[in-house]
Design a binder for these strands. Structure first.
Lengths: 208, 208
DNA sequence: ACTGTGTGAAAACTCCGATTTTCGCTTGGA
DNA sequence: TCCAAGCGAAAATCGGAGTTTTCACACAGT
C-alpha cells in the first residue's frame, strides 16, 4: 500500500474509467434531456443509456440536476467559444463582428437543436440553484456583447449607449427566434435564419 | 328529487361554493408558484393556503399542472387584454401604438412580478402539453404584434417586411429585459424600463 | 495461486407526494 | 324531526423515483 502508482484495468487507469463514465453520462444527458426532457428522464434511464451503473452514477454526480447543469454548461461554452473564436478573426467593424459572432453561435444550435431545447426549456425553472447558474451563464454572454459594444464606441463607430439592456434584449430576441425556428416543419434553411437574426442584431444595436 | 332548483348552503349556492374554491386555488397558485416555484409547491400546500380540502381540489382540477396553466392563462390574458385595450385608444401611428401597448403589458408585470416569474420560468418545460400551451399563448401575442405591423404597412407608414420574426424577437427581447429587471436590487423605476423597452421596440421594428 | 481493489447488475430501502376514500358535522328542505 | 347533500379534515392507499447496499465476478500485482 501507500503506493503512488495507479492500477490499470483492461488497459485504462481507474481515473480513465471514471472519466469515460462521466463522459458517457454527459452524452446520455444531452441525448435524453434533449429529446425526452429533463423531467421525463429518470436517473435509471440515464444510467442505462450511458451503460453506467447507478452506483457509479453517484460517484460522478450528486444528482440528476448536476448532470443537466453540466450538459448545459457544455452547450454554453460551446456556443460562446465559437462566438469568441469568430471575434478573434473578424475585422474591426461592429456590424461585421456582431453578425459573425452571432452566426457562429447560431450554428452550434442549428447543428444540434437538442442544445437549444436544453438551454431554452429544460434548464429553466428546475430549481433555485439551477436558475442562478442559468443567469450567471447568460451574464457571461451578455458581458461579451456589452464589451463588443463598448469597444465599438471606443473606436468611434457608434455613440455611447446602454449596452447592457441591448445585450440582454439581443440574447432574448435571438433565442426566441431560434426556438421558434426549431418548431417549424420543415425547418427553413439556416441562411434565412441568419439573415433574419442579422438584421435583428443590427437594428437592436441601432446600426440599421 | 328531480328538482331543478339549487340548494343553498350558508347563503351561497353549491356552484358559488365551487367557484369560490376554484378562485382561492388560483390565488394560492399565483402566490405559491410565484414565490416558491412550481416544483417547490405541493398540492397539499396549495390546498392548505387556499383553505380547500384535497377532495375538493380534485373536484376543480385534475392535477397541479392544470392550476399552473390556469394561472398562467390568467396572466397572459391580463397582459394581452391591457395591451389590446391600449390599442383601442391609441392613435393611428405605429410607433405610438407599439409603445402604448408595450407599456400596458409591461405594467401588468411590474405591478405583480409573480406573474413574470410564472410566465418566464415556472411554466417552462413543465411537460410537453404545457409547452404546447405556452407556445400557443405566445402565438396569440405574436399575432397581435404582427397584425399591428401589417396595419401600419397598409397605412403606408412603413415598408412591408417579415413581421413574424420581428414580433417573436420583440417578445423575446422584452421578456428578457423584464426578467433581468426583476432581479435588480433595488429595482430601477418603471420609467427607466419603459424607456429602454420603447427604444428597443422601435429599433426592432426599424422605426428608429 | 492468493489477495486487493474495481466493476456491472440488481436488489433493497426510503421517502415523498399524488390520489382516493373515509368519517363525522352542518345545512336546508320535506 | 328526519334525511339527503355538501362540507372540511384526516387517514389510507399507492406509486414512482432517488439513493444506498449487496453480490458475484474480473483483473492486477505479489
Amino acid at each position: 500500500m501507500a503506493e503512488g502508482n495507479e492500477r490499470r484495468y483492461s488497459g485504462r487507469s481507474v481515473q480513465e474509467w471514471k472519466d469515460a463514465r462521466r463522459e458517457r453520462l454527459l452524452d446520455a444527458g444531452l441525448a435524453l434531456f434533449g429529446s425526452e426532457g429533463y423531467q421525463g428522464t429518470s436517473i435509471e434511464r440515464l444510467c442505462s443509456t450511458a451503460k453506467v451503473s447507478t452506483r457509479h452514477f453517484y460517484q460522478e454526480f450528486p444528482n440528476k440536476e448536476a448532470v443537466l447543469l453540466a450538459v448545459h454548461e457544455q452547450g454554453v461554452q460551446l456556443g460562446l467559444g465559437k462566438a469568441l473564436e469568430a471575434l478573434t478573426t473578424a475585422e474591426e467593424s461592429i456590424d461585421v463582428r456582431l453578425v459573425d459572432a452571432l452566426r457562429a453561435y447560431l450554428h452550434t444550435i442549428i447543428t444540434d437543436p437538442r442544445r437549444g431545447r436544453i438551454a431554452f426549456v429544460e434548464v429553466v425553472g428546475v430549481s433555485p440553484a439551477a436558475e442562478l447558474r442559468r443567469r450567471e451563464f447568460r451574464e457571461a454572454i451578455v458581458a461579451v456583447i456589452e464589451e463588443e459594444g463598448n469597444a465599438a464606441v471606443a473606436r468611434g463607430e457608434m455613440p455611447p449607449q446602454d449596452f447592457r439592456h441591448l445585450a440582454i434584449a439581443l440574447v432574448g430576441a435571438v433565442n426566441g427566434v431560434i426556438y421558434d425556428w426549431m418548431f417549424e416543419d420543415p425547418r427553413p434553411p439556416a441562411e434565412e435564419l441568419e439573415a433574419a437574426l442579422s438584421t435583428l442584431a443590427l437594428r437592436i444595436f441601432g446600426l440599421a
